[in-house]
Design a protein around this nucleic acid. Structure first.
Lengths: 250, 250
DNA sequence: AGAATAGTGTCTTTCAGACACTATCAT
DNA sequence: ATGATAGTGTCTGAAAGACACTATTCT
């Protein structure tokens, strides 16, 4: 950016550049477990493995716009669904041998889907499959993450992931965990209105621990981000819980 | 990354790609204030403004390696100095109009320099200048950061920064602040051995607040990262403080 | 001795964890 | 009434803030 002498004589096409892509971690919760949407690879390289949806970055779009385009074109999101999805840049992966075909640098994004949207996308015709993510313990922090077929909950054999996508997934869950209690990312995994129990379930699923109920409620309510709707949960066979709405802190 | 049909017929040179660079925020402390090393721009575009040292990413180096190369070739670091510098990837900036000449995506890195090394690099012949960073308050979080000439401490007129480098600096100080009390980045700004007061000064400079002395000491010592050397500060006209060494937690 | 800072003892306050308790709904 | 979960009151313990105090060095 600051190489003046270099740039003055620079022919944009003259020097070889790495290719640039975005890869998206589409994360949601399925049955109380973190899950991710993956595409099966059918061709070389890494045929038979599972990959994150991604795309090359075009010259006329920003990185964020490229990520949105992947949501629309690779995952079948409608513009409205794109709008209700939390997205943030995760990290940029630039190892030399990430892809055997050529040098590709990839900007990884994390997208968080409420459970209903996750299911809807999964049922759509985009060809995405859900994989349950093993929540790593403290000791495994930083290691690649193992994912399992979402069909049977007791599956033991890990799905093979393409490229360095296991590293990307590991970073995604770590980032999510780190931001969970000081930011508002947790709400991105919940529907418009939700109960405090649902919110606690989200936190517990991502942290992989159980939380103290009174302390959790106190903290969340004291934070001032929750607005009681006055409505109650329906369809339970017991006392229905109050429904809250998340209000963005000014 | 996962566009199979596209890639099979892909000629690496056939499609236009954004250029890819790394830009480095070389940060240290000067006289109790966060400071950054900048290069003056002498040519169009943004001539007369100040820029972060950076470089294009080559095909045969990773992003981290490109950042190291900038340290060596643009900032005049010796390999030993590179080794004693903390580096981490910050964020990737991909706005369309970042650079008026062509589409350039830049991976920003944060490098932390102990005060002695900061001064040494500044005095070197790499042409870098030091600029004092205005530590933004809570209300200005996320805004571009203003920097001032380091010569006179009372300077009021902000230095003009090139490209989106004010945004990069803003993110750098925010990231540093966020990681300060749960990670060990603070030690990267200190020499090999240091006193607890120096450590507290580093934290106060970056946070822009004052801290409670007994509480700070308790927290730091309880964390188990500090090893007393047995030696004492020298050159003071009062009681010399114990010198500690940072020991990487296993 | 005096100045200046290093380093500590202790009280208070705040907040999380634990546990039991009450409240409210469907059946 | 019973079962099941929602929601709360309160005790306890850990840790931060505040403040005063002692300790140690140089001049």
């Amino acid at each position: 950016m600051t190489e003046d002498d270099f740039l003055r004589a620079y022919d944009p096409a003259a020097f070889p550049r790495p290719a640039l892509t975005v890869d998206l971690v589409l994360m949601g919760l399925r049955g109380g477990c973190p899950a991710v949407l993956l595409m099966p690879r059918t061709e070389h390289p890494h045929a038979g493995r599972w990959a994150l949806p991604g795309s090359f970055v075009r010259l006329d779009e920003t990185l964020d716009e490229a990520a949105e385009r992947v949501l629309r074109t690779k995952a079948g999101f409608t513009p409205a669904e794109v709008a209700e999805t939390h997205r943030e840049q995760l990290y940029t992966f630039g190892a030399l041998d990430r892809d055997p075909r050529m040098r590709i640098v990839s900007v990884a994004y994390l997208a968080l889907l409420p459970e209903a949207l996750f299911t809807q996308v999964l049922m759509g015709d985009a060809g995405l499959s859900a994989a349950r993510m093993a929540v790593p313990g403290e000791s495994e922090a930083g290691r690649p993450v193992a994912v399992f077929a979402a069909r049977d909950r007791a599956a033991r054999t890990a799905l093979p992931l393409a490229f360095d996508h296991a590293d990307i997934l590991a970073l995604a869950i770590l980032r999510l965990r780190g931001k969970l209690d000081y930011s508002d990312v947790g709400f991105a995994l919940l529907p418009e209105t939700f109960t405090l129990r649902q919110l606690q379930d989200v936190h517990e699923a991502i942290l992989g621990t159980t939380l103290n109920k009174p302390a959790f409620r106190r903290r969340m309510l004291d934070r001032g981000w929750l607005v009681p709707t006055g409505a109650r949960e329906t369809g339970t066979s017991f006392r229905p819980a109050e429904l809250y709405r998340y209000r963005k802190p000014l």
